[in-house]
């Protein structure tokens, strides 16, 4: 496999990703969007931009539902990812399925939530339609499951069976959602790192692992802060509730989990690479996403490796999507522009 990949130049893919990155929203675009007064105006604006023109084809801005608008943004990013993977036939390499795996995990978690909440149809209603034909998991079949055990049974033969089968359901068929999420995400990251080690070599492997670890760490930092601030978790409990990748050397970040107060955690973040941003904000998500966006843009500008560029690009798109959804929601509920600007993930 290595030999094949070595011969297989993916420079064109990197160039394509950079070109797509160039079409992403800038601060001016966000500012222009923020001047809109209603969801139809937002939809109309988005449908005129080069970035989302094709995604909004055939839609009527005047009648579009806000939820559908958000799903279209999500789908546009997913379609971009698929387009990049298919460009040089990279979709045949398991590593490149990483976004599909992530979306599949989201769908499974939706179903677990559906079982726990006993809300009929909530899974089907929220299931992103575009995933149905892309996924190897029978996503529609999952809706037939009434208990967690039934769900696991349907998932047999998929990569998600193993991590979920270790979790025991309650007698009433419900299950610990957080444990499931942790198990699925941990398994997903571990597989991704294994692919990075097995398939790629040298600086490519190093860069790839660095970007994946960065994502794990920044996600853990946000979760640990929330656990401390809102639930008062102890250091031990936090360590057991975050994504711990086996075999990874323990770094400076371990000290963060042991801090006593949320304020100390905020101080730590502000002085670390995970919280380095231009804006002075106490909202931890905004700070970390800002820093992540900057770091990922930097990685994308410098790398010559297709898997690294794709990973960075996908994560940048995710942040952009979050930002757009944030603006659209704020416009929908008539929030003040200054408040909106303050909470923007990137600006």
């Amino acid at each position: 496999m290595r030999a094949t990949l070595e011969c297989y130049s993916t420079n064109a893919t990197v160039a394509k990703i950079r070109a797509m990155h160039g079409r992403m929203f800038t601060a001016d675009n966000y500012r222009e969007l923020m001047t809109k007064k209603s969801v139809p105006e937002c939809a109309e604006y988005l449908s005129r931009t080069e970035r989302y023109r094709s995604a909004f084809k055939d839609t009527d801005p005047n009648t579009i539902h806000r939820g559908y608008l958000e799903e279209l943004l999500n789908k546009a990013n997913f379609d971009d990812y698929i387009r990049v993977c298919e460009f040089q036939g990279l979709d045949s390499i398991p590593y490149y399925r990483f976004l599909i795996s992530r979306r599949e995990i989201q769908c499974i978690l939706l179903m677990i939530n559906n079982i726990n909440s006993e809300l009929e149809n909530s899974y089907l209603n929220s299931l992103p339609g575009y995933m149905i034909r892309r996924s190897k998991v029978k996503l529609l079949e999952l809706s037939r499951a009434e208990t967690f055990d039934e769900l696991v049974k349907i998932l047999k033969g998929t990569p998600y069976y193993k991590p979920l089968s270790k979790i025991k359901a309650d007698p009433d068929g419900k299950v610990d959602y957080t444990a499931c999420e942790l198990a699925l995400r941990k398994d997903d990251f571990e597989k991704l790192i294994k692919y990075a080690e097995d398939v790629f070599i040298g600086s490519e492997e190093r860069e790839l692992k660095e970007i994946i670890y960065y994502e794990i760490d920044s996600t853990n930092i946000i979760n640990a802060y929330r656990m401390k601030k809102y639930f008062g978790y102890s250091a031990e409990k936090i360590k057991n509730s975050i994504i711990n990748i086996s075999g990874r050397p323990k770094g400076r970040i371990q000290k963060y989990y042991e801090l006593d107060t949320p304020e100390q955690m905020l101080d730590w973040i502000e002085n670390s690479k995970f919280g380095k941003c231009d804006r002075d904000t106490d909202v931890i998500e905004t700070r970390i996403m800002q820093a992540r966006y900057r770091w990922l843009s930097h990685v994308l500008a410098g790398t010559t490796s297709a898997p690294v560029a794709l990973y960075a690009f996908v994560r940048l798109c995710y942040i952009e999507e979050k930002n757009l959804v944030h603006i659209i929601e704020a416009i929908r509920y008539g929030a003040d522009t200054s408040v909106l600007e303050k909470d923007m993930l990137i600006f």
Binding site: K57, D58, T59, Y68, K75, N121, L124, L127, P128, G129, Y130, I132, R133, L140, S143, R144
Partner: peptide
């Protein structure tokens, strides 16, 4: 209806039936 959601219809156990007339790339 967005075409992606069309396949969901038969999985609902609700009291309705639908008649499709025409499909385009997205709807």
């Amino acid at each position: 209806l967005p075409i992606d959601n069309y396949s969901k219809l038969e999985y609902y156990n609700e009291n309705f039936f639908f008649v499709p007339f025409e499909t385009s790339e997205n709807f």
